[in-house]
């Protein structure tokens, strides 16, 4: 409880502590705090920026999606129209083709019929000739017809 030289010692210690604190403790702490403050501010700004960007992106995405919707419905409409056209076209083509095929078939049939007729005619004529041959064979008598044949051959020879 007495005032003594401790007073001086403590005053010196006090100033040394203050000096040390001012020189080596305070500046790095403040620097760190400032740095962190700047970093946090930066982070917050970045966050805000990100949020804004996200909002923009959302708007843009909405635009893109609605555009895509419109385009898709356009495409579907167009496709429907085109499909109708194609069906019509195919139908026409098919009809044409069918007509062509039918015509060809008819022509072929006619041809077939004609050729069949020809063949028939030939066969019939051959048959007739054969029959005639048979008849002639049985009818012909060399003696009887000698004059006739001679006649013919003489005619041929004169010609």
């Amino acid at each position: 409880m007495n005032i003594n030289a401790t007073l001086i010692g403590q005053t010196i210690a006090f100033f040394i502590f203050v000096w040390f604190c001012m020189k080596y403790v305070w500046p790095p702490l403040m620097a760190a705090l400032e740095e962190r403050k700047a970093k946090i501010a930066e982070g917050l700004a970045a966050g805000e920026r990100g949020q804004k960007e996200q909002e923009l992106a959302e708007v843009r995405a909405k635009d893109v999606i609605s555009g895509a919707h419109a385009e898709a419905s356009d495409i579907i409409n167009l496709a429907n129209v085109r499909a109708g056209e194609m069906i019509e076209e195919a139908k026409g083509k098919a009809r044409e083709e069918a007509a062509k095929v039918k015509k060809g078939a008819e022509a072929e049939i006619e041809q077939e019929v004609a050729s069949a007729r020809e063949v028939l005619r030939e066969q019939v004529s051959a048959l007739a000739i054969a029959a005639a041959e048979q008849i002639i064979k049985s009818e012909i008598d060399a003696t009887k017809h000698k004059t006739l044949i001679d006649n013919v051959s003489s005619q041929l020879g004169s010609a």
Binding site: T6, L7, T11, A13, F15, V18
Partner: peptide
């Protein structure tokens, strides 16, 4: 609780 201490700081 030692006045030397508190007075030292106050004098500083």
């Amino acid at each position: 609780t030692d006045p030397n201490m508190t007075f030292a700081m106050a004098i500083g």
